[in-house]
Simulated scan of single mutants.
Amino acid sequence: MKIKLWINNKVYEDHVEPDTMLLDYLREKGFKSVKCGCDTTNCGVCTVYLDGKTVLSCSVPVVRADGHRVTTLEGVAKEAEEFARFMAAQGAEQCGYCSPGFIMNVLAMAKELKKPTEQEIKEYLAGNLCRCTGYEGQYRAIRNYLGATRANYQLFEKGEVIEGVR
Rank of each mutant, 00 (worst) to 15 (best):
G37R: 10
C38I: 12
C38R: 08
T40R: 14
T41M: 04
N42V: 14
V45P: 00
C46W: 04
C46K: 02
C46V: 06
V48Y: 07
V48F: 08
Y49F: 15
L50F: 08
G52P: 06
G52D: 03
T54Y: 00
V55N: 11
S57K: 01
C58Q: 12
C58Y: 11
S59P: 13
V60Q: 11
V62M: 09
V62N: 09
V63Y: 01
R64S: 11
D66K: 08
D66R: 02
H68D: 01
R69P: 04
R69H: 15
R69F: 13
V70S: 10
T72N: 10
V76E: 03
V76H: 04
A77M: 07
K78E: 06
K78H: 07
A80M: 09
A80L: 09
E81Q: 13
E81H: 10
F83D: 04
A84E: 08
F86E: 05
F86R: 07
F86S: 08
M87R: 01
A89L: 15
A89M: 14
Q90W: 06
G91A: 03
E93C: 11
Q94T: 10
C95R: 05
C95W: 04
G96R: 00
G96I: 00
C98I: 13
S99C: 12
P100E: 03
G101V: 07
G101N: 03
I103S: 00
N105H: 08
N105S: 15
V106D: 08
L107Q: 09
L107M: 11
L107P: 10
A108L: 05
A108Y: 12
M109L: 14
M109Y: 04
A110E: 11
K111L: 07
K111C: 07
K111E: 11
L113F: 03
L113V: 05
K115D: 15
K115P: 02
P116A: 11
Q119I: 04
E120Q: 04
I121Q: 03
K122R: 13
E123L: 08
L125Y: 06
L125E: 05
A126D: 03
G127I: 08
C130K: 01
C130D: 05
R131Y: 10
R131V: 12
C132R: 06
T133A: 09
T133D: 03
G134T: 06
G134K: 00
G134V: 02
Y135T: 08
Y135R: 09
Y135D: 06
E136V: 15
E136A: 14
E136G: 05
E136W: 08
E136R: 13
G137F: 12
G137L: 13
G137I: 14
Q138E: 12
Q138L: 14
Q138S: 13
Y139I: 12
R140Y: 02
I142Y: 00
I142G: 02
N144S: 12
N144Q: 12
A148L: 01
A148C: 03
T149E: 13
T149S: 09
A151N: 01
A151W: 00
Q154E: 15
Q154F: 12
Q154W: 07
L155G: 06
L155Y: 05
E157Q: 14
E157N: 14
E157D: 15
K158Q: 13
K158A: 15
G159L: 04
E160A: 09
E160C: 01
V161G: 04
I162F: 00
